[in-house]
C-alpha cells in the first residue's frame, strides 16, 4: 500500500496571495496537491500518495501558533498520513518557523516530518533534530532543484530506506550511530594520516564538540549564614548501594541524608568504575569531603552543611545525561535555598 503524504504550504506557495494574505487562517484541501506539493508528489514515485495540502498564512502561524498547531494536529489525526512535507521554505524566516512548527506537530504525532530550507533559515534549528530537512538554496528561484531533493527524501523514508546527510543532502539530525565498516580502525587512522601527509583530502570521523558558556553566579555575601551543599560525580553511595547506581554511564542520580554524619568514612563507598576505588573505600571523604565541611560548620565558618548530598557516576556518562542531572539537582538545591555548592569530580 502506498504511504500517505500530506503537504504544508504558506499563503504564497499555496496560491492564496502575497504578504497581504499572510494572516490567512489555515485550511485543508483534501485531495488537492497545490504548487510545490504537486511537483514533490509527482517526483516521489508510486509508493507515495499525496492526500492533501494544508495552507496557512505565515503571520497567522506566528501570531496564533497554538491554534495553527492544533489545526495541523487535527488534520493529521483525521487523515492518518505517514509523512508530512512542509515547504520548501528556502531562506524565508517566518515560513521556516511555520514549517518547523508543522514538522514538530508531525513528529509529536509519530509521523515522518520532511522539509526543505536554506542553511541560515532560523526555522532550521527548531526542527533539525527530528526532521529530515533538505538543504536548499536561499531563494525560491531554485525551486526546481529543491523539489527532487525533497521528493527523494519522501520516497526513501517512505520505503524505510537508509538516508544519510551526505548522500541525500539533508541537514544532519545530530544522531551519531555506531556502525560496522569495512576497514578496521587502525587502517582508517593510517589512511587518514597518509592523506594529511600528502596534503590530500580527508574527512574526520569526529568533529570536535563545542561547549556553551554560562555566566558565573554571584558570590555568597555572608558565609557564616550560608547553606553549602555537597555534590559529586564520584559515585559515592551508602554501603550496599541501595539505589543501585551504575558504575559507569549513569542513567540516574541519587541523594542521601547526611545530616547525622560527621564524616563519610566507614558508611559510604564508591561504585564509580573509572578509577582505583581502594583509597576512596578506605575513606570516602577523600572524594567528597564531608568531614572538613562539617568542621567548618561547627567552627561557624559556614552556616550549615545542606542535609542532602547528591551523587552520580561521571565516567562514560553522556553529557546529555549530566546536563539533565544538573538541571534536576540544581532545581532542588534552588528550591531548598542552598547558597553554594561544592562539586567534586574524579
Amino acid at each position: 500500500m502506498a504511504k500517505k503524504v500530506i503537504y504544508y504550504l504558506n499563503q504564497f506557495f499555496g496560491g492564496i496571495g502575497g504578504e497581504d494574505m499572510a494572516d490567512f487562517e489555515p485550511e485543508y484541501r483534501a485531495g488537492e496537491m497545490v504548487g510545490p506539493a504537486m511537483g514533490i508528489n509527482a517526483a516521489s514515485g508510486d509508493d507515495c500518495e499525496g492526500i492533501g495540502t494544508i495552507i496557512c498564512g505565515d503571520n497567522f502561524f506566528g501570531t496564533h501558533e497554538e491554534e495553527a498547531r492544533a489545526f495541523i494536529a487535527k488534520v493529521i489525526e483525521e487523515e492518518q498520513p505517514d509523512i508530512l512535507v512542509a515547504g520548501p521554505a528556502f531562506n524565508a524566516g517566518r515560513y521556516g518557523f511555520a514549517c518547523a512548527g508543522a514538522c514538530s506537530v508531525a513528529h509529536e504525532a509519530g509521523i515522518i516530518p520532511v522539509s526543505g530550507m536554506y542553511e541560515e533559515n532560523p526555522g532550521l534549528e527548531h526542527c533539525q533534530a527530528f526532521s529530515w530537512v533538505a538543504a536548499t538554496a536561499n531563494a525560491a528561484a531554485q525551486m526546481r532543484k529543491a523539489i527532487p531533493l525533497m521528493a527523494n527524501l519522501v520516497k526513501k523514508l517512505a520505503a524505510g530506506e537508509e538516508v544519510t546527510p551526505e548522500e541525500d543532502s539533508y541537514f544532519a539530525q545530530g544522531r551519531r550511530e555506531t556502525v560496522l565498516v569495512e576497514d578496521r580502525g587502525s587502517k582508517r587512522a593510517v589512511d587518514m594520516l597518509l592523506a594529511r601527509l600528502n596534503d590530500e583530502e580527508f574527512v574526520t570521523e569526529l568533529p570536535m564538540p563545542s561547549f556553551d558558556e554560562v555566566d558565573p553566579a554571584p558570590a555568597i555575601q555572608d558565609l557564616s549564614h550560608a547553606t553549602i551543599a555537597l555534590v559529586t560525580s564520584g559515585g559515592i553511595v551508602p554501603n550496599g548501594n541501595p539505589d543501585r547506581l551504575q558504575s559507569a554511564s549513569a542513567q540516574q542520580w541519587n541523594k542521601y541524608d547526611i545530616s547525622s554524619y560527621d564524616e563519610l568514612k566507614g558508611d559510604f563507598y564508591t561504585v564509580h568504575g573509572g578509577f582505583d576505588p581502594v583509597y576512596c573505600n578506605e575513606d570516602a571523604d577523600r572524594v567528597l569531603p564531608l568531614d572538613a565541611l562539617r568542621e567548618m560548620e561547627k567552627e561557624g565558618k559556614i552556616g550549615k552543611v545542606y542535609d542532602l548530598m547528591y551523587t552520580t557516576t561521571g565516567t562514560g556518562t553522556a553529557v546529555a545525561n549530566s546536563i539533565k542531572f544538573g538541571e534536576e539537582i540544581g532545581k532542588e538545591l534552588k528550591e531548598a535555598g542552598v547558597d553554594g555548592v561544592l562539586l567534586t569530580s574524579t
Binding site: R175, R176, A195, T204, P207, P209, A318, A320, N321
Partner: peptide, 27 residues
Amino acid sequence: ECSGWDGTSQPLTDTAPEAVAVVSSGN
C-alpha cells in the same frame, strides 16, 4: 566516544581545535 544511548550527546569530555583528523571507533 560517549554520545549517549541515542547518540546525540557530546562525544568527548575535552576538546582542542587542533584535533582535525580523528578516527572514531564507536559510541
